[in-house]
Structures are given as C-alpha cells and as structure tokens.
Write a protein that binds this DNA or RNA. Structure first.
Length: 430
RNA sequence: GCGGUAGUGGCGAAGUGGUUAACGCACCGGUUUGUGGAUCCGGCACGCGUGGGUUCGAUUCCCACCUACCGCCCCA
C-alpha cells in the first residue's frame, strides 16, 4: 500500500456516511426548532484568532495547533475548535448590529484539527457540531443551550446521559479564586505532580483537573470556586440550576470542573455518557459554556455569548456501542436484467425512465449472465426485477418479478414507459 | 511529545530461516446454453506494513520508518 491517509485522519465510507448524514440532519432539524441558524466559516483562520481566544498558555495553542505559514508568509491555523471562527465572523460581519434580532443564534458542523496523538474517538481531523448564541446574559439561554444538547443526544438514542455543570464566575470571581487556590497549593508544591507544578503558575485552575491520584487527594481539600462567587455570579448560577430543575433535567455540580480554553466564564457544562463498551469511566460527548468577553477580545463590542461543541466521532462510537438505531443505505426499488447485447439500449432507456419517475434503479454493466444479475439484484435487496431478452424485445414486453414472493408476470413495455409508478404500486401491493 | 502492544489476500485468521503461504467468510465462475436467496465443484496473496541489513536463502532474525490501538498529556 503506497499511499495512506495522513496520521489521525479517517475516510468516511458510504455505509458510514449515511449515519453521518442522519446525525447532521437530526441536529439541523432540532436546532431549527430552537431557531439556531447555520453559519459556515473557513476551515483555516489566522493564527491570532485562536491564540487570542483560547489563551496563549492553553494546551491547544501551545502544542496542538495545526499551523503553518502560507506562500504569502501568513501564519495560518487549521481551526482546532469552532467558537473562535464564529466569533470572528460575528464581529467581522457586524452581526451585533441593531438589525439583527438578539440573541443571534448560530450553529455549525464541520472538521476541526488538532495535532495530537490519535486514539479511538480522538483524531487529528475530527468533526464537531456546535452552537453559539450571542447577545444575552439570560440564564434562560444557558439552560436552553444545555437542554438542546441533551435533547439532541437523546433524540439520537444515547442513554445513560449525565449532565455535569459548574460555574467559573466572572472576572472578579476568578481573580479571587485564583489567588485562593495558589495560596492553598503553594505550600504543597513539592507534593504536586510535575505537570501540576507547571500548571500552578500558568493556569492554576487546571490543577483541579489533574488525573494524578496524589494531585486529586490534594485538590479534594482545595477551596471551592463556589465559595468565591460574586453575588451576581452566584445568582446567575442559582438561576441556571433552578431552571434546569424546572425542565426536570438532572444534573450534578462538579466544582472542580474546568475548561481547557481560557475564554470561558460563568456556566460551563459537559454532557457525558457512560458505557462499558467504551472503556471505563464517562466519555464527554458535548461540552460548552459561557464566554462573555470573547467577542470583545476579538475586537467586537461587549457581547455575551454561550455555546457548546459536540464531537461527532465520539457520538458515533457511543451510538454504536449503545446500539442506537442508525440508518443504512436504502434498498433498491428496481433492478433491470438484460440478456444479450441487443438489449443494451433498451435497458438503458428503461432504467432512465424509471429513475425519472423517482425510483432507484440499477442494471448490470459487466455483461454478466442472467443468474449473476439476479444474484446481484438479490444482494442489492431489489424489490422488483425487470428482465428483458431478445424474445421480449421482439414482442415489446418485459418480465417483471417481485423478488420477495418470486411472482413473475409479463407486462407491456409501453406500460413501463407510460406509467411506471402505477405498475410498481400494483405489483408491490400483492 | 513520552511509554506499551500490534501490522499476513476484501475481512477474520494459521504458519515456518529454505519446495506450490493453511483454513473460514466474502467475492467470482461452473453445476442449471435466459432467473436470486440451498448443495456441490472450482478460482481468488509473483506476496506476508515500508525501506534497509544479516544470511547461500527471510514473511519468519536485526535496525529504522510508517500506521493503528492502549496508557500519559490533553480533549470533542
């Protein structure tokens, strides 16, 4: 095998593409009910769009960006996530203008890129479905976005869903909490894992997220951000929780949950699914939160925002593991068997006529024997097989066989041409 | 980026330093000179991830690389 796809990429073959289409169309229908509209932004952006939004110290920016300099020496990055580009487009196209109804609600789907070591459900080119809503601080919006994510996953047949939420508060909250956390961790500096030692200075909140067992013990007694919320932040979070209860959406608060991207504040959430088939522990399929301040960061007016991203590959893995229903390629309506070279032009006319009547139709292209053609018709799950040989051609008739029952009848060729739908209906009713 | 496991036909899977690389499934063909889902028969890797090396000889030994999978990091 000479050529291989680049590391961490995947070919989505026809059988699987059907599932992808199903997921995307299901999402689009649901999002439309919530009045979120599609936006398509470039797959690459200027490096600064991401470095500015995600945070210079975030792992995404420091080690996972797929970036390069183009022939004009522009520093380009293949988008590692969807929000930054959408925010950039929101600002650049002035969607904050008064003529746009607020909140401006958008969704996107498409490939994202991160330069990291591939594993199952983790690729260098992967796909996300994401939503963003700009221009409202209402906790109602937080809850609607969360609810929409939950609904989508449920609609796609995922069960054992777990919603985990937390709040990062506002600027003042984070500042206060940051110093409190550092004050708590610094005396234990030597006990921290190597990774956490680095994180302590760069981004202390990330220490909370450490998988290291000793770190976790330390972190267990660390101050909670929930005790440092400003009154406004606390009240926002309270309202979000109350509204979730109003909608009877179960949730857990995890005060140590953080975000890999710096732009988040206030409500953050993750929707996880637990499935033994996917190994131990919970898998996060959908994650998001508020990012008031990001629009300003990218040069727009002060505009609050909130959104989520959902990993399509992970979702598919989950759906397969949980045996969620997935569509398959639709069965064939009609297969046309031609016997002998002389029938070639007639079978071509027949398949084209039937197709133009809205039925899926196929025929043999390999000059195979009738038996083989029937075998193929059977494999393709054809409902009806039309057979045409020299005799039929001379008599201007055709044999029509219903595969499920084996019934075969001769019908006039002109009936096929004049009114195929009627013919099809007549034979399939039996 | 680090550590580990693996890589044989479309798929699954045996195998050995040395004649024609098992077997199963799938596929193709025949048994039925124009009719499917059954049986039986036959066909199907000039090649064992790629490139080097050792050797009289390598799919089998060594090295490098590539890729996949698992763990770490991180995350969707």
């Amino acid at each position: 095998m000479k050529y291989q796809r680049p590391k961490g990429t995947a070919d989505i073959l026809p059988d699987e593409a059907v599932a992808w289409n199903y997921i995307e169309s299901t999402a689009k229908k649901l999002f439309d009910n919530y009045r979120f509209h599609e936006i398509r932004t470039p797959i690459f952006e200027n490096f600064e769009v991401f470095s500015r939004s995600a945070g210079d110290t975030s792992d995404i920016v420091t080690k996972e960006m797929y970036d390069f300099h183009d022939k004009g020496d522009r520093h380009i990055t293949l988008r590692p996530e969807g929000t930054a580009g959408v925010v950039r487009a929101f600002v650049e196209n002035k969607l904050y203008g008064p003529e746009h109804i607020k909140p401006v609600k958008l969704y996107y789907t498409g490939p994202m890129f991160r330069y990291e070591r591939p594993q199952s459900g983790r690729l260098r080119e992967f796909h996300q479905i994401g939503v963003e809503a700009f221009g409202s601080e209402s906790p109602n919006l937080d809850v609607e976005v969360i609810s929409m994510g939950m609904h989508l996953l449920k609609k796609l047949g995922i069960h054992n869903l777990k919603l985990v939420i937390n709040t990062l508060g506002d600027q003042a909250t984070r500042k206060a909490y940051r110093s409190a956390l550092i004050a708590y961790l610094e005396p234990h500096f030597d006990e921290l894992s190597e990774d956490s030692k680095v994180r302590l200075h760069k981004n202390p909140l990330r220490v909370l997220d450490s998988k290291d067992k000793d770190d976790q013990k330390l972190v267990a007694d660390a101050p909670s951000i929930l005790d440092y919320l400003t009154p406004e932040s606390a009240s926002h979070f309270e309202t979000v929780k109350n509204l979730l209860e109003t909608l009877q959406i179960d949730y857990q608060v995890d005060a140590s949950m953080v975000r890999g991207l710096d732009y988040y504040n206030h409500t953050i959430f993750e929707i996880m699914a637990n499935d033994k088939a996917l190994g131990k522990g919970d898998v996060t399929v959908c994650a998001g939160g508020r990012y008031n301040g990001l629009v300003e960061e990218l040069g727009g007016p002060e505009t609050p925002g909130i959104g989520f991203g959902l990993g399509v590959e992970r979702l598919l893995l989950l759906m397969q593991a949980q045996k969620a229903p997935l569509p398959t390629i639709s069965p064939l309506d009609v297969y046309v068997v031609g016997i002998g070279d002389e029938t070639k032009s007639e079978t071509l006319k027949i398949v084209e006529t039937i197709r133009n009547n809205g039925f899926s139709t196929d025929q043999d292209y390999l000059d195979r024997k009738p038996k083989s053609q029937f075998k193929t018709a059977d494999r393709l799950n054809a409902k009806i097989v039309i057979t045409l040989g020299n005799d039929e051609l001379a008599q201007k008739v055709v044999n029509l066989k219903v595969m499920a029952t084996g019934d075969e009848q001769q019908v006039k060729l002109e009936d096929v041409y004049d009114n195929f739908p009627k013919l099809f209906g007549k034979f399939l009713k039996k």
